[in-house]
Write a protein that binds this DNA or RNA. Structure first.
Lengths: 177, 177
DNA sequence: ACCTGAACACCGTTCAAGT
DNA sequence: ACCTGAACACCGTTCAAGT
């Protein structure tokens, strides 16, 4: 069911995801869906959660900055594959199982980078907000008039800034100062 | 009409903004609205544009960093006053008259800060994306479980990072290095 | 940037009923 | 994590018609 809904959203946009269209795609009546999901809101929640499932955890052998870069590129890829559903990520609490999994990966990388443990959660929110804000802007339409090439440059610049922010907040760096 | 639509969105959410509800509020039939607006999509465009109208340009006597801070706080205030409509800002091209006005204000501040002219547009995109991403996350629900106090701290931290980014990109700073 | 009535093809959801 | 038919109160939008 979530697979059908996501396919519809990817192909025809979020507005085309209706109880009737999903049901039709499954060769069933709309009412049958209520056996499997509480309602349309829950269906959309499921789609958002599925998006995060597609984000792989990078190999643990990599250095922390390479892992964070890989995750950021992964998120951008998810956004590009599912532009209709992706913006919903900003509209519900980042407290679902998949959201926790992803956040855990970022926490680990930040700890490894030497960020003050007290500052890890805030730094994670800062990084995630910036990356999500960029990805949503890109697929949501805000940057519609800009070329892919230009946006690739913007993304690279954003990653540099975030790396600098992490390094500046690390204990190693503070000891050096 | 836009005033009615915005009032409905603020009070009852975006889903409650329908041609029928807006018409009812204006004591008119839904069909009458089509004289004033092309359709529902255009109505929503109008609401988004109206939001930006609420963002005042800070006094030009202020220093560039104080002006940017004031604009960022202003945007966050707009988001908090209109949480249902605000997220739509990321979903259409930032090329409307009001969007140009706001961007112009940021360009001026960045030039004053000494940012390399070639880098002003990209820096503006970086700043706007981060601020919008934060504001949308906050009012959209992603940070729903966090206290206002915590989010105030996050916002302050974000502004600091952006200021540092601007200073690092200024010619004055590069000359000093 | 005039308003309305009637109609169309859609929505999400509930409920009783059937396997 | 069973499916359906009939029904309800909604949607956005078009069209012909009225001022």
């Amino acid at each position: 069911m979530l697979r059908s809904g996501l396919a519809l959203a990817d192909e025809f946009g979020l507005a085309s995801v209706t109880m009737q269209s999903v049901a039709t795609r499954l060769a069933v009546t709309p009412m049958a869906l209520y056996r499997h999901v509480g309602g349309k809101a829950e269906l959309l929640d499921g789609l958002v959660e599925r998006l995060l499932t597609e984000l792989p955890m990078p190999m643990p052998e990599l250095a922390w900055d390479e892992r964070l870069t890989a995750m950021a590129q992964g998120i951008r890829g998810v956004a590009r594959r599912h532009p209709a559903v992706f913006p919903l990520l900003l509209e519900r609490p980042a407290a679902t199982p998949e959201a926790l999994r992803v956040r855990g990966g970022i926490y680990t990388a930040l700890e490894e980078a030497g960020v003050d443990p007290d500052e890890v959660p805030r730094t994670e929110r800062l990084i995630s907000t910036a990356i999500l804000g960029f990805a949503v802007s890109e697929v949501g339409g805000r940057f519609a008039r800009h070329s892919r090439r230009l946006l690739d440059g913007d993304f690279e610049r954003l990653l540099e800034l975030l790396r600098a922010c992490i390094v500046a907040g690390s204990t190693a760096d503070r000891a050096r100062a």
